[in-house]
Amino acid sequence: MSDKKQVSAHFHTNLGLYWLVSGALLISVSVIGIPLLLLWFPLGIWATRRYIANMSAELTEQKLIVRKGLLTRTENTIPLDKITDMALIQGPIMRLFGLHKLTVETAGQSGTGALINLVGVVDVYHFREQVLTQKSLLNQRQENATQPPTLDALFVENLQQINATLLRIEQVLTSHSSQ
C-alpha cells in the first residue's frame, strides 16, 4: 500500500514574534535577565527563523510526520492508528497572537505530556480535522480487511464456483457429443 502525502501544515508568520515576546517576558522577570535582553532579540530573531524554517508536519495516508529542531533535528513518525488524542491549547499570549498549540498523544507513549507539540499551525482546526478524518478512514479500512466474509459473500462465491464448474462440464459434454 502506498503512503501518499495528504496535506502539509504551514506555520503562522508571527510565530517567531510570539516566541521572542514569550522569551523576553521570561528573561525580564529576573534582574540578571534584563541585560540579556540586548542579546536575546538579535539571537532570538536568527534562532526562531531557523527553527521555523526547519519545522514541518506532513499527513500521509498512514502516519503523521513531524520534523523540527535547530541544532538537533528530530523527526517523529506517528502511525495514525496509535493517536489517542489531539488537543488544542491557547494561552493568553498565544491568544494575543492568534496562535494555538496542537498536542498529539499516542497509545503506548512513555512519560507524561504530549508526544508532539506543534505551535502556530495555520488553520489548526482544519489540520486537526484532516488528521482525525484520515485516522478514521485508516481504521475503517483495517476493520474491513480483518472482518471475515459475510454469509452472503460466501454464497455468491460458491454459486460462482458452481457456475464455472457447470460451464466446464457443459463444454466437455458438447465437445464429446459433436465427435
Rank of each mutant, 00 (worst) to 15 (best):
N76H: 06
I32A: 15
T112D: 12
S28G: 11
T112Q: 12
E75A: 10
H12M: 02
L37N: 05
P79R: 11
R50E: 07
A24N: 11
A9Y: 04
W40T: 09
A87I: 06
G44W: 00
L138V: 02
K82I: 07
I34L: 04
F97Y: 05
K135I: 00
K68F: 11
Q134R: 09
L37D: 00
E143T: 12
T112C: 06
G111A: 11
L17E: 07
A47R: 09
E170F: 11
G108D: 00
A24E: 04
M94P: 05
N158H: 07
A53S: 14
K5I: 14
A53H: 09
I27Q: 05
L151F: 13
R73L: 08
P148W: 00
N14S: 13
K5F: 03
N117Q: 15
T112P: 05
I45T: 13
T165A: 08
W46F: 15
T106R: 06
L115F: 04
E157W: 07
P92G: 07
L43D: 06
N158S: 08
R141T: 05
Q160M: 14
M94A: 12
K135G: 03
E75T: 15
F127R: 07
T150V: 03
R168C: 09
L102R: 04
Q109S: 12
G44T: 07
L154V: 04
T60I: 00
L20S: 08
M94Q: 13
T150G: 15
L80K: 03
T174H: 13
N14W: 03
V119T: 14
G120M: 14
A9N: 07
P148F: 00
L137D: 02
A153K: 13
A24P: 10
L138T: 05
A153V: 08
P42Y: 01
Q62P: 04
Q109K: 09
S8G: 11
I83D: 04
T174V: 14
P149C: 01
P79L: 12
R95N: 15
D85V: 12
